[in-house]
């Protein structure tokens, strides 16, 4: 663990909490893309399957459980509890256009052709583009609420901080994972591009 990874994880945690609190306090999920949240739930589910096979640390286990639980809680709020406030007319991104290419790419480019490894790789590829339905929705409606911008900023910072973490780990442990690094850079560029435009 280093400072970049810890602050990255905390930014990720903060983003999720901002989103949940926003929906809960305003009793509304207006402006939030349910499609992006579906993609994040798929990302966490396919990445954290190793929760039952591999133990890393209490921190690792607790964070994984939190990310899984919060992503399903967010889906529950959007699609069931506050369904009436969900802006589905503006949430029209076709997620199969992200899921299928990410899956095919995971089958072709991975570290090992095993069930867990391919799904882990798929989750990395899918995460890098999972925010697109949300960015598409913001660009369609013209403006994001400030709280939605805070959410996007915290979520974007997380992968940017992970890039610093990967540089640090390369320097100190000579450890690197090209799949995570390339996908992480793509992900960060998408967020930067969005913040540059808006």
């Amino acid at each position: 663990m280093n400072i970049f990874r810890l602050t990255g994880d905390l930014a990720h945690l903060l983003a999720i909490i901002i989103l949940l609190l926003k929906i809960w306090k305003t009793r509304s999920c207006a402006g939030i893309s349910g499609k992006s949240q579906i993609l994040f739930a798929i990302v966490y589910t396919t990445r954290y399957l190793d929760l039952v096979t591999t133990y890393v640390s209490a921190y690792n286990t607790l964070m994984k459980i939190f990310f899984l639980a919060s992503s399903y809680a967010t889906l529950y709020l959007i699609y069931i509890k506050f369904k009436a406030t969900y802006d589905h007319n503006h949430d029209t991104f076709r997620i199969e256009f992200l899921i299928l290419p990410a899956f095919i790419l995971a089958l072709l480019i991975n570290h090992a052709f095993t069930f867990l490894e391919v799904l882990w790789t798929f989750s990395i590829y899918l995460e890098s583009v999972a925010i697109l339905p949300q960015l598409f929705m913001v660009s369609k409606t013209g403006e994001a609420e400030s709280i939605t911008s805070h959410y996007l900023f915290a979520l974007g910072s997380y992968r940017a901080l992970y890039i610093l973490n990967w540089i640090y780990r390369y320097a100190t442990e000579v450890h690197y994972d090209l799949i995570a690094i390339v996908a992480g850079i793509v992900q960060t560029v998408l967020y930067c591009d969005f913040f540059y435009l808006y």
Binding site: R5, D9, H12, D50, T54, V56, S57, N60, M63, K64, F67, H111, W120, Y162, N165, V174, H175, Y176, D177, L178, A180
Partner: peptide, 10 residues
Amino acid sequence: ERKLEKKDEL
């Protein structure tokens, strides 16, 4: 490239 045996990142 030395891939992690255990994936310790989130």
